[in-house]
Amino acid sequence: MSDRSTRVLLVDDQALLRMGFRMVLTAEDDLEVVGEASDGAAALAQAAALSPDVVVMDVRMPGMDGIEATTHLLAAHPGLRVLVVTTFDLDEYAFAALKAGASGFLLKDAPPAELVSAIRAVADGDAVVAPRVTRRMLEMFAARLPAEDGAAVATGATDPRLSPLTAREHEIFAALGEGLTNAEIARRFVLSEATVKTHVGRVLGKLGLRDRVQAVVLAYETGVATPGT
């Protein structure tokens, strides 16, 4: 990222929560709250007018909800990053938000420092998913895996979407599916973080993925990531 502040748009139908988020974020030198919106339609208009870098998006709002708004926002502004922050950790909301292109999913009971870190992470092109949401998503995907495919599905070996990957890239992809950071992947495979970053970029590029969140979703869909990994 450049040295300029990260421009943040707050979208939530509760004014008190928006005020709380604003107070937390304006205390940070590298974050600037450029606007607020109370529903998805207003968020689209504000994003067009203000050109934020990150949108902090609620899910349940009157009129256009956060999932629909995320879909429209990313279609109109491909470089925009969306961090979904919600009270609800229900599977359908987490999965729908990530499938819509959100770069992160955080719960509103997260500590203020975690919100700040999450905004910085998604602005830098990384992905953030609350740990308990990740666990629930793993359980959901496990229930969907076809039992008859057995070990082949568990390794993603039969899924043609993964065919462009080399053996090393498949290992990196599997590690992404576990939610490991670059540092953790580097330790596991005894690589430098710079090398891991290069591998991650190639994996995302070959698979046509926007970011690490989409890599996690695809890993679950293909069975590369499973509960307990």
Rank of each mutant, 00 (worst) to 15 (best):
G66Y: 00
A113G: 13
N182D: 13
E28I: 04
R60L: 11
A118K: 01
T87L: 15
G223S: 13
A45C: 02
T71P: 00
V24S: 05
H72Q: 13
E114M: 05
D58R: 14
A121H: 13
R212L: 06
D30L: 01
L73Y: 08
V56F: 02
E139R: 11
D91V: 00
R187S: 15
A154D: 11
Y220A: 10
A49C: 02
K206Q: 08
V224T: 15
A154F: 11
A142S: 13
A110F: 03
R187V: 09
M57K: 03
L218H: 03
V54C: 03
V224K: 08
G179H: 07
L218W: 04
L10N: 07
R120D: 13
R144F: 00
A157I: 01
R81M: 04
G150Q: 13
L31Q: 08
T71K: 11
L16A: 12
G63N: 02
A49H: 15
E171G: 03
L16Y: 06
V116A: 05
T229N: 11
G66I: 01
M61A: 08
V129R: 08
E36R: 01
A69T: 05
A100S: 01
G104Y: 06
F173T: 06
S192L: 09
D124C: 00
L209R: 13
L145Y: 14
V33L: 03
S38E: 13
R136Q: 09
R18H: 07
D126P: 01
D65R: 07
L31Y: 10
V85D: 12
E139Y: 04
L31P: 08
E68K: 12
L176C: 07
M140Y: 13
H170E: 12
P62G: 09
S103T: 06
L191F: 06
L10E: 11
Q46T: 02
G35P: 07
A219D: 12
L165T: 09
P78V: 04
D58P: 06
V190T: 08
I172R: 10
F21L: 07
R18F: 02
F189H: 14
L98S: 07
A37K: 12
V116E: 03
V128G: 01
V129P: 00
P227D: 10
S103I: 01
P112V: 05
L25V: 05
A48Y: 07
R210L: 00
V59A: 02
A225P: 00
V133T: 10
E32I: 04
M1T: 09
E32H: 15
V196F: 05
V84W: 01
S103H: 13
I119H: 03
L162D: 04
K108S: 12
G205F: 02
R4I: 05
A157G: 04
L90Q: 15
F95P: 00
Y93Q: 08
D109W: 01
L162R: 09
P131C: 12
L74Q: 11
T86P: 02
E32C: 09
T222Q: 10
A121V: 04
I119W: 00
A15W: 09
K99T: 11
L204W: 05
M19K: 12
G205Y: 04
T158V: 11
V122S: 14
A219F: 01
V153D: 12
L204S: 07
F173N: 03
S192F: 01
A37V: 07
A110Y: 05
A27I: 04
L50F: 04
P52M: 12
D30W: 03
D159Q: 13
A127G: 14
A123M: 05
S103Y: 01
V216R: 15
